[in-house]
Design a protein around this nucleic acid. Structure first.
Length: 564
RNA sequence: GUCCCUGUAGCUCAGAUGGAUAGAGCGGCGCCCUCCUAAGGCGUAGGCCGUCCGUUCGAAUCGGACCAGGGACGCCA
């Protein structure tokens, strides 16, 4: 019996007994639809495997003290347990102090879970939470005017991990990169390259306003000059488009390579240029018909204030060109039109003011704003030896994602970017990241995985694989082993928690605990010994740990070393 | 000025939808390799959870005010 079904069945029993109580006790009202009942895993294992606050939530409703209500519910549940085949799974239900009901699962459930892990293997922890729903996750989407920076690195790691987590939880995920390949910034890019190209050919023009600086710009200019010599010097203003196209091409190529080196892949690259002017103005026209768009001061405005924004926003400037919002509205409509039921946008914190605007647009387009989740991933600050490294994108002084990956490796970089809650600023210490000890959680977790392989190897060399991995329940009795059983049992609720909250860091905390529990077990008990039966049982157990750590690291996009 | 994020042990941070005595790592101190990787483990010390009100059976968690740090507020993208 899988853990989900036990959880589900217990919470069903609770609800059932509440319903029965309304009939037994003089009910004043009908039960509210959302009871707010939570069945959760208690922090302290002394409080059982599952616990609920149901009695405390419902005490007022029934006019009973939480303790009395708890007792009544428990006695009803116990009657039902006898009738169902759950009786062997729940060993005890206790009522504690303020009114908690604690469920203790029988050890058999935890042992059966090991068999489930072995069977499901790399699917253990997967669920059908998403029920096959199509969900699109758009992330990075950095303008192709320069290489990816550390900030993009965090967004890339988060988006990719969330994609994997959502897939694992039964969603149909599409990862998308919106490529901003036209507009003023792209023009400025072209002009910046042109400036350097002309400089090489000893033609001096003023440096463009909003121009980009940085070695990569001069490199592109040199590359063009090498290929085409001084071909574009005469009548250079006619060739601006060539320079910007060339620059975008080179930079997008670099971005794709950096992402590939970071093990991040996208299903769709969506160029802004594919949203033609006509498509954008068609969308604006349809919004105008619905009364969401109006003219003022020679510009066209979106009536976003009525939909929750603090002011109305310009969509067509008085010079006739679109603001960024206009194609973005069309883009989001396009996402829905492609059949996605849910959208996730991952942005930097500098875009937070933009959220009400796009939410307003979603509403104006006639979709439920809740179908769009905007995740604002806070910045990552790089440190070296406790000192923050300064960054300024404008001056071209920044640390690229590429440099970070080169210095610490993809595994470590990904892990560090995911380590904190998305809302938290992230301090990324390069020296700590390279350290290989307990204070570096990546190595700590990978080390547990490698240790298990090392035990398996040892067994293979000693006994030539003759020890059968057989689960003899009576042999697993150490405290450290029981601890592992419990943690392994919790893995599925951890993965679905990540999916529900769109937060990968929950998984990291879990893996840290599991690795710790394993290291603790390892130093206290020998796996491979003369006692073949015991060795077999322990090999079975640690292989389940290996599967769990492996599945967890896979979701984070971190590799699973067999040796370290 | 408006808005967003943050404020928990000396340092870096957990505390997933409010829950039962607030947890890790580092650093301090003291231990554990004739034994499957010591890149490990164990023990110990260390806290008015920024401040003040409020909601609740119950608050680090929710609401309000204030204080401190970071960031955003364009007919830029």
């Amino acid at each position: 019996m899988s853990k989900q079904s036990i959880e589900a069945r217990i919470s069903h029993l609770i609800e059932q007994s509440l319903c029965r109580l309304t009939r037994i006790l003089p009910a004043k009202k009908t039960l509210p639809e959302d009871l707010g009942i939570q069945l959760e895993i208690p922090k302290d294992m002394a409080h059982g495997d599952l616990t609920t606050n149901a009695a405390m939530r419902m005490a007022n409703f029934f006019g009973l003290s939480p303790m009395v209500l708890s007792e009544k519910i428990v006695s009803l549940i116990q009657e039902d347990l006898k009738k169902s085949n759950l009786e062997s799974s729940v060993s005890e239900i206790e009522v504690k102090k303020p009114g908690f009901m604690n469920f203790f699962l029988s050890e058999q459930v935890l042992f059966d879970n090991l068999k489930i892990i072995k069977e499901e293997n790399d699917c253990y922890g997967a669920s059908n939470l998403g029920a096959g729903q199509r969900i699109q996750i758009e992330f990075v989407s950095a303008n192709p005017t320069g290489p990816l920076t550390v900030a993009h690195g965090r967004q890339a790691a988060v988006g990719d991990a969330l994609g994997k987590i959502l897939e694992f939880s039964g969603h149909k995920v599409s990862r998308e990169y919106f490529l901003n390949d036209e507009g003023r910034q792209i023009d400025a890019l072209g002009e910046s390259i042109l400036f350097h190209y002309l400089a090489i050919n000893e033609v001096n023009i003023p440096f463009p306003e909003d121009g980009y600086r940085g070695a990569y710009i001069t490199e592109i200019a040199e590359e063009i000059n090498k290929k085409y010599k001084d071909k574009f010097v005469e009548g250079y203003h006619k060739h601006r488009k060539f320079f910007s196209d060339y620059g975008v091409n080179v930079i997008v190529g670099g971005i794709k390579k950096d992402l590939a080196d970071f093990n991040v892949c996208f299903d769709v690259w969506f160029p802004q240029s594919s949203l033609t002017k006509k498509r954008v103005s068609d969308v604006l026209d349809s919004l105008r018909k619905k009364g969401f768009v109006y003219d003022k001061d020679g510009a066209v405005w979106f009536n976003s204030m009525k939909l929750g924004d603090d002011k109305d926003r310009v969509v067509v400037k008085s010079d006739g060109s679109f603001t960024y919002l206009a194609p973005d509205i069309a883009y989001h409509l396009n996402k829905y039109k492609r059949g996605f039921k849910r959208l996730v946008d991952i942005w930097g914190p500098d875009h937070h003011g933009y959220v009400p605007r796009i939410k307003a647009a979603i509403k104006a387009l006639g979709y439920d704003e809740k179908s769009l989740s905007v995740l604002l991933v806070q910045l990552a600050t790089l440190y070296r030896d406790g000192k923050a490294l300064s960054m300024s994108t404008r001056k071209g002084e920044f640390i690229t994602l590429k440099e970070v990956i080169k210095e610490v490796g993809s595994d470590v970089a990904r892990f560090f970017f995911l380590m904190r809650k998305l809302d938290s600023h992230l301090d990324f210490d390069l020296e700590l990241a390279k350290r290989q000890s307990r204070d570096n959680p990546v190595f700590y977790i990978q080390y547990a995985h490698a240790r298990i392989w090392s035990i398996k190897d040892f067994e293979y060399k000693q006994a030539k694989g003759s020890i059968p991995h057989r689960l003899d329940v009576s042999l697993i009795k150490e405290k450290e082993e029981k601890n592992l059983l419990r943690l392994l049992f919790q893995f599925p609720s951890c993965t679905s928690g990540c999916a529900r909250n769109l937060e990968p860091y929950i998984l990291i905390a879990y893996l840290n605990n599991l690795a710790r529990a394993f290291h603790d077990f390892y130093t206290k008990h020998r796996v491979v010994s003369d006692d073949t039966a015991l060795s077999g049982a322990r090999l079975y157990l640690i292989d389940c740990v290996r599967i769990c750590i492996g599945n967890g690291l896979n979701l984070l996009g971190v590799s699973l070393p067999k040796k370290m």
